[in-house]
Design a protein around this nucleic acid. Sequence first.
DNA 1: GTTAGCATGTAAGGAGTTACATGATTTT
DNA 2: AAAATCATGTAACTCCTTACATGCTAAC
Lengths: 214, 214
Amino acid sequence: MSRRSGVLEFAVLGLLRESPMHGYELRKRLNTSLGFFRAFSYGSLYPCLKELLRQGWLVEEQSGAAEESRPALTGRRARIVYRLTAEGKERFEELLDQTGPDAWEDEHFGVRFAFFGQTSRDVRMRVLEGRRSRLEERLATMRASLARTREKVDAYTLELQRHGMESVEREVRWLNELIESEREGRGEGRDHSGSENPEVGVEQNDTDRNTDIT
Amino acid sequence: MSRRSGVLEFAVLGLLRESPMHGYELRKRLNTSLGFFRAFSYGSLYPCLKELLRQGWLVEEQSGAAEESRPALTGRRARIVYRLTAEGKERFEELLDQTGPDAWEDEHFGVRFAFFGQTSRDVRMRVLEGRRSRLEERLATMRASLARTREKVDAYTLELQRHGMESVEREVRWLNELIESEREGRGEGRDHSGSENPEVGVEQNDTDRNTDIT
DNA sequence: GTTAGCATGTAAGGAGTTACATGATTTT
DNA sequence: AAAATCATGTAACTCCTTACATGCTAAC
């Protein structure tokens, strides 16, 4: 009944924390900026926004003409702009700090990583290491299964298993680099600037076009 | 109402084509042999089996003692063994030949590939090439999006996008090799033996233990 | 003047999970 | 004797999609 999706809620709060937006733009950002991994439809986005409003984490802003310097854009359509409230900000911060086992599961890890810029370093470490050990666990099961089923399955199935394992191994190596990089306190040229710095966010890009993943 | 899941139905028919099995064992095979990519629960498996029975594609075999040489295993529990009917076999063949755009989407491609051993070569080619062009389409969108959003998103988001793109590029390379290999008619040592050869299937492995992916 | 994109929503349904209910048997 | 594994099943719920409904504006 309540449409409290976890992933979607988290992503919406996170994106709105950077800057207020209307639904249509929000969806585009969900499908691109956030690492491409998911495609949400309006059928889930709008009900989610409604629920977040109900919780008091968002407020509507019937933005028609104000604060935009160009008057050409004002006449589009209703365009309900959503802004994060103080409570919403608090809620998001609360979610950011959660390091339950959910955080490193497939469905959640991507979106958690996408907001690492807002996440404290120790939480980042816990999530990265949690993810890694989760994947290593999975690798162990895969290897055991491979050793047992080899010869019994056909070549295509075997190739699929091999490729699947290689993908997981690759992600583990990626995580190793990231964890190493976190430990060094951002050594190699990258500046993630710790857990502060909201200025890296997006600043009113009305010029976006065709950003859908089909 | 009808619980006709597509992926699950296809996988169950395919596994039962190799040899009759009971539900519990079926689930283990779904989570391991089939490339690890999905974990189905009993809550979906049993209703699916029920539906397949209703369609006449499966029959129950109250297998208690027969055909097993060791009498030690007979006393376990009811153990309803399912066997594919002629209609079920036909249905599976029908599904194997489908090359609609669904076949190369994320949810379906894995399971389609897992049964390539039973699939005719031209269908294999269509599915592999369909998958590849689907991914290349996605890559184009990603690249366009990256070019537009660079500088506007923070370093973590960018890293996530970069890693996501690399994963897709890697799968494209994998597909290229597979397509090449199909064109050569299985050149390099691998013998997938065309579209015939049901003997590669699994033959009654009662010794399986701990094959779950947690 | 019609296609494509912008913009917001709802209702119905699909595909799966979790939690529960039950009970045998094997291993520790 | 307890814990794990084997084995089957159901009800309620979650989360998301598709299809529909509506209407405006920009570009071709």
